[in-house]
Design a protein around this nucleic acid. Structure first.
Lengths: 328, 328
DNA sequence: AACATGTGTGTAACGGGTTACAGATACATC
DNA sequence: GATGTATCTGTAACCCGTTACACACATGTT
C-alpha cells in the first residue's frame, strides 16, 4: 500500500503539502495541487486511518451497546445507528452486553483503547461512576440510565395508558398486564401507566399483574398461569411485542380465541407482530428514528462538542391489528 | 491518559523495558518487572491500541458482512461471530450490505484503511476480482460466493430433500415450493433438492413452484396466488422460515387450516418459528455454530496464516412442530 | 585466557499520518 | 523604501507503542 511519502516523492513535494491537499486546509498552489492529485490517483493512495487516529486521538468510530441483538427490537435500532454512522462517515461497532455490567465495562475499556469517539447505549445497569469515566459523548436509548446522560426514548407511561385505554374502548372489562423486568425503567413506566389506568376500577385486583422478562418464553409461562387463574380476563396488555407473541401462544394453548374471547395488545411495533396469527395490535415505537436520532446526537456532540444533557421523547402510536377487536 | 513513557519514567526504566513487561517477551529482571507492574497499576495505564495497530499493521478487529441485520437469521449469526471474536480478543464490526456491491466495496475499503484483520461475509454478489484485492483472511458463510474463498454452509440440497420427504412421509400428495431469490446459491440448491424429490411424481407440475425474496411479504403474496390457483396443494415447502411465516399467514387469510388441510415446512430454524400459531415445522440450521466456526476459521487464519481454502458443510435437522402433521 | 552463550537494559528508528513553525516570495499600503 | 499581509512550501516534531541493535555483565566451555 502506498504511503503519503510515496505520493510526496512522486509529486515532488513534501508530505506536508500532500496532507494539505488531502485535507483541504492551508494554502496550496493550484498547479501543485494538480500534481499531487495526479500522484494520488496514480498510486491509488488512500490515507491510513490508523495513523490518522493515532495523531488525532479520534477514530471516527461509534459503538452501540445492546443487551442482545437476538431480540428483534434491536436489529432495527442497530440498523438506524449504522446507517447514520455511515452517512456521516463513521465506522459502526455493535456490542452485546447481555445486560452484564462486567461485559459492559470490558467493552467500554476495549473501545476506549481504540479511541472510539462515542457511544449509544441501551443499558439498565451502567453506574453513574462509570459514566463519569467516559469522556466521550454518550447517549442512552430505550432506557434511561441516569440523569447525567442524554437520552432518546418514547413516552412509555402515556403509551402504556393509551394501550390500556384502547382495550377499554373496545369493551374489555378485565384487563391484565404481563410486565417486563422490574429493573428496567421502561417496564416500570409501562406498569405504572397500566396501574394508573386500572387501579381505581372496581374490578381491578393485583392478580392481574404478572412479571416476566422481555422475551417469548417467560411471557408465555406467565400468561398461561394468569389466564388459567383468572378466566374472566378479557384483555391483556403485554410489556412488549415479544411478550405479546407469548400471550397469543398461551391463549392458543388454552383454547382461548383471540380476539373473540380475549384481546391482546403489545408494545414496540417490531415486525414479527405482522407475521403472527392473529396479527398483533401494538403501540408502535418509531424504532428507526430513535436510533437515528441518538446516533445523530452522538456524532453532533463529537464534532461540535455540545455538552448539554438533552432528553428527547418521541411519540408512540396505536396500531390496530387482528388481536384486538370491539366486543359485540 | 497515561502513556508508556509515563510508566517508564515512574519505574525508572526505558519504554522498551515496559513494553517487554507488557508483552512478556525478551528478558526482564524479576525486580524490574515488579517495579514496572507497580507503575502500571499506579498510573492505571492501558496500552493504546491505535498505536499498536499502526506499528503492527494489524488491528485485532474482524468484520461481519450481512445483507440485512433486520432479517432474523442474521442476528444469531452475528451473535456467534461476536462471541468468538471477543473470546479471542478481537473487536467485532457489523456491516449491512443490503446485497449492494457498491456498499460492499465501500465497507471493504473503509475497513482495510482501519487495518481490519479479517472478514466473515454473507454475500451473493462479491466478485472474484474483489476477492483478489483483499489480502486478509475471509470466509463466506450461508452462501458460497466463489471457489477462491473458504466457506461454512449447510447442506442445502439434502436438507431440502429431507424437508420434502418429511411432507411426503406424513401423507402430502401435492407439494409446492415457494423458493428464495434465484441469484442466491442456497435458494437454487433448495429448489434443486425439491425438484429432484418431486420431478418424477406423476402429480408434479411447474405451477407448484413460486419464487419470492427471503422475506415475509413476498412469500405471503406468492403463497396466496399459488394456493388460490392450485387448491389441491396439501403441502408447502417454504424457502426459509420467514417465508414459511408468510405461507402460514396466507393460509389463514384463505381459510386453509394448518396442518389439517395444509402442511407447511420452513428452513433455518430461527426463533420466530416457535412464536407462530401454529408453530412452524422446519429444517434447523446450526446457525450459531456456523457463525462460530466461520469466525474461528478467520481468526485462526489471521494468527497462523493457514491459507488453504476449506469448505465446511454442517448438517441440518428436521424439527417437527405444529404446522405439519400426519394425514389420517 | 579466549570465546560462546544467556541475561538484562537502553537508544533510536519505525509505522504513517498531521501540523507548528519558519522561511520565501509576491503584492499592496503608506 | 519600509512595512504589512497573503500565499506557498518544507522541516521536523509529534502521536504512542514496538523492536532491531548495541552494549554490559555473568556464567560456562575448552
Amino acid at each position: 500500500m502506498a504511503t503519503i511519502r510515496d505520493v510526496a516523492k512522486l509529486a515532488d513535494v513534501s508530505t506536508a503539502t500532500v496532507s494539505r491537499v488531502i485535507n483541504r486546509n492551508g494554502y496550496v498552489n493550484a498547479e501543485t495541487k494538480r500534481r499531487v492529485t495526479e500522484a494520488i490517483e496514480q498510486l491509488n493512495y488512500v490515507p491510513n486511518d490508523v495513523a490518522r487516529s493515532l495523531f488525532k486521538g479520534r477514530s471516527k468510530m461509534i459503538a452501540l451497546f445492546v443487551p442482545d441483538i437476538t431480540n428483534p427490537f434491536f436489529p432495527e435500532l442497530a440498523r438506524a445507528v449504522e446507517d447514520v454512522a455511515n452517512q456521516r462517515d463513521y465506522t459502526f461497532v455493535l456490542c452485546n452486553t447481555d445486560n452484564d455490567p462486567v461485559k459492559e465495562s470490558a467493552y467500554l475499556n476495549a473501545l476506549q483503547q481504540k479511541s472510539a469517539d462515542g457511544f449509544v447505549i441501551v443499558s439498565s445497569s451502567i453506574s453513574e461512576e462509570q459514566l463519569e469515566e467516559i469522556n466521550v459523548p454518550m447517549v442512552a436509548v430505550d432506557r434511561i440510565t441516569g440523569r447525567s446522560i442524554s437520552s432518546v426514548t418514547v413516552n412509555n407511561y402515556s403509551g402504556s395508558r393509551q394501550a390500556v385505554q384502547h382495550l377499554k374502548s373496545i369493551g374489555c372489562k378485565r384487563i391484565a398486564h404481563i410486565s417486563g423486568p422490574e429493573h428496567t425503567d421502561n417496564a416500570v413506566l409501562r406498569l405504572r401507566g397500566y396501574l394508573d389506568e386500572v387501579m381505581y376500577e372496581d374490578w381491578f385486583n393485583s392478580n392481574y399483574i404478572a412479571v416476566g422478562e422481555y422475551n417469548f418464553d417467560t411471557a408465555r409461562e406467565a400468561a398461561i398461569e394468569l389466564l388459567r387463574d383468572c378466566p374472566e380476563v378479557d384483555g391483556v396488555f403485554a410489556g412488549n411485542d415479544l411478550m405479546g407473541a407469548g400471550v397469543l401462544n398461551a391463549a392458543a394453548a388454552l383454547g382461548r380465541r383471540v380476539p373473540d374471547d380475549l384481546s391482546v395488545i403489545g408494545f414496540d411495533g417490531i415486525s414479527i407482530g405482522k407475521t403472527l396469527t392473529p396479527t398483533l395490535t401494538t403501540m408502535v415505537q418509531p424504532i428507526y428514528e430513535i436510533g437515528a436520532k441518538a446516533a445523530d446526537m452522538v456524532i453532533t456532540q463529537i464534532e461540535n462538542g455540545a455538552p448539554a444533557i438533552t432528553s428527547e421523547e418521541l411519540p408512540v402510536q396505536l396500531m390496530e391489528r387482528q388481536s384486538s377487536r370491539r366486543k359485540e
